[in-house]
């Protein structure tokens, strides 16, 4: 059974790209999407069963870090930050770790990531699999 993934990103195109990328991974399946942290919390409260959450940081209404704070209590799902502001050594990356992010991957910026697979596909896939294996 594939691991169930929820994508939380305010950029519709980004959700599209990530979804498309995950479709190429037979061991993962996107089962839910949300455009901000609040919406994602509602999805969880409604009973969305997910194993992995790919989480953007900069979102309106409720950002990814605030969602992380709540979700770390509310779900057993692994949470992987996937954001352009979590470059290695960045304050956001540190904050995400402080709040308990299980994985951190910096998504490419500049093109709203239509080159997601090309630039970070390997890293993202590896991180997702490592987190699920942990």
């Amino acid at each position: 059974m594939p691991h169930r993934v929820m994508i939380v990103d305010d950029a519709a195109m980004m959700r599209l790209y990530i979804n498309s990328f995950i479709k190429g991974m037979p061991d993962f399946k996107v089962v839910a999407q949300a455009s901000n942290g609040e919406e994602a919390l509602h999805r969880l409260a409604e009973g969305a069963e997910v194993d992995l959450i790919l989480l953007d940081i900069e979102m309106p209404v409720m950002d990814g870090l605030e969602f992380l704070r709540h979700a770390k209590l509310k779900t057993r799902a692994k949470i992987c930050m996937l954001s352009s502001v979590v470059v290695s050594g960045s304050p956001h990356a540190a904050k995400a770790r402080e709040l308990g992010a299980d994985g951190v991957v910096a998504k490419p910026s500049g093109t709203v990531s239509h080159d997601l697979e090309e630039k970070i596909g390997d890293e993202l896939a590896r991180t997702m699999r490592v987190l699920m294996a942990a």
Binding site: A94, R97, V104, E123, T127, V130
Partner: peptide, 16 residues
């Protein structure tokens, strides 16, 4: 913050 940055850098290295 530096502690968490180091944690992040080590974790990323391990993941990769």
């Amino acid at each position: 913050q530096l502690a968490m940055s180091l944690l992040d850098l080590f974790e990323r290295g391990q993941t990769s």
